[in-house]
Amino acid sequence: MILGKLFAQWLKSIKGMSFLFLLLIVFNTLFDSFSYSISMILRIIIMVSSFSMFFLTVHPDDLMLSLISLKIPYNIAFSFALSFRFVPTIAMEAQNIIDAQKSRGYELEQGGLISQAKNLIPLLIPLIVCSMKRAFHIAESLDSRAFGSTKNRTFYYTISYAKKDWILTAILIAFFIFGIIVKIFPNIIPAWFYFRLSI
C-alpha cells in the first residue's frame, strides 16, 4: 500500500514534467532523431525518479543518521536534516502569505522581468520575516532541550550496515564498473542489442 502511494506521488512528479518531455521530443526530433529524444527523456526520468524516490522514502532523520555513520559531525548532519524538516512548513506558510495578500487585492501581474520581480516583494518580505522568526523560535527550543550540552551525544536510534546493505552496495558497484567497461569497450555488447528507431 505504501508502495502504491509512493508510486502515485512519483507518477505525479513525472506527469508534471510532461510538458518538458513534449518540448524535448519536438526539438530533438527536429534537430536529431526521434530515438535520441526518447533516450533523452528516459535519462531525465531516471534522474528525477531517483531523486524523488530518495526523498519520498528516506526521512531526513534517517539521512542524518547515515551521514553520522559516515563520520560527518553531528552538528552539520543535524542542521542538514533540520532544513529538510521545515520545507513543508515553509511551503505552507508561503501559501498562507499568498492567500493573505490576494485577499487585499494583490495580483501577480504579467509584465517585464523587473516589474514582476518588484511584484514579488509583498510575498518575499513576509516570508523572510516569518522564517527568521521561526528560526529564532527553533533555536530557542533547541537550546532549552540541552542541544549542544555535551560532546558525547548518545543516539537512541542508530542505523548500521546490515548484510543486505553490503550485498546491495556490491551489486551497485558491479553495475558501475560494468558501465565504465562498456563505455570503454563498446564491442563487448552483442550487435543484436542495438536497435534504432528512425523516422
Binding site: K102, S103, E107, P122, P126, V129, C130
Partner: peptide, 19 residues
C-alpha cells in the same frame, strides 16, 4: 481579484501580510 473587493478576509497572523 474581483471577489476580494466584495469579501475581505483578515487572517489570524498579521505578519503574513505586513511588508
Amino acid at each position: 481579484s474581483y471577489l476580494s473587493k466584495k469579501v475581505g478576509i483578515v487572517f489570524q497572523n498579521p505578519e503574513l501580510q505586513l511588508f
